[in-house]
C-alpha cells in the first residue's frame, strides 16, 4: 500500500516537473554572462583611453 502511494507520488512529481519543463535556477550563468559582457566593454573602453591620441594637432 505504502509502496503504491510512493510510486504514485514519484510519478506525480515527475509529471509536475515535465509540465513545468523549465530549467531551474541558473542565475550563476546569467551573472557570469552579464559580468563578462560589461567587463569586456569596460576593459575595451579603458584600452581606448590608454591608446588615446596625445599631443599633436588632434588634442586641444
Amino acid at each position: 500500500m505504502t509502496s503504491l502511494l510512493l510510486v504514485a507520488q514519484v510519478t506525480a512529481d515527475a509529471a509536475a516537473r515535465v509540465g513545468e519543463g523549465r530549467i531551474q535556477g541558473g542565475w550563476g550563468y546569467v551573472a557570469a554572462s552579464y559580468a563578462i559582457a560589461y567587463g569586456a566593454m569596460a576593459a575595451y573602453a579603458v584600452s581606448l583611453w590608454l591608446r588615446r591620441p596625445r599631443g599633436g594637432k588632434s588634442e586641444e
Binding site: G21, R22, I23, Q24, G25, G26, W27, Y29, V30, S33
Partner: peptide, 10 residues
C-alpha cells in the same frame, strides 16, 4: 521564460 526559466536572460 517558459522553458528556459531564468537562464534565458543571457
Amino acid at each position: 521564460e517558459r522553458e528556459m526559466g531564468e537562464v534565458y536572460r543571457i
